[in-house]
Simulated assay, not measured.
Amino acid sequence: MASLAVRLTPGAAADRIDGWGTDADGRPVLKVRVRARPVGGEANDALVRLLAKTLGVGRSAVTIDRGGQSRTKMVRIDGLSNDEMRTRITGL
Rank of each mutant, 00 (worst) to 15 (best):
K53L: 11
I77D: 00
D78E: 14
N82P: 10
A52G: 07
R59E: 15
A46E: 10
R76Y: 02
A46P: 07
D83W: 02
L50A: 11
L50W: 08
L47C: 08
M85D: 00
M85G: 04
V48R: 15
R76S: 10
D78M: 03
V39N: 12
L80V: 08
V75G: 04
N82H: 09
T54C: 01
L51W: 08
A43R: 03
M85K: 04
V57M: 11
K53F: 10
G40P: 10
D83L: 10
N82V: 01
I64G: 02
N44M: 04
L47V: 04
D65Y: 00
L55K: 05
R66H: 10
T72Y: 13
L55S: 06
E42V: 11
E84P: 00
K53R: 14
E42Q: 15
N44S: 14
L55Y: 09
G79H: 02
D78C: 00
T63D: 08
K73T: 00
R71A: 08
E42P: 01
V75D: 02
G67A: 06
K73P: 04
V62F: 07
V48L: 02
G68W: 10
M85R: 10
D65E: 15
Q69N: 09
S70K: 13
R49H: 11
V39Y: 12
M74W: 09
N44W: 01
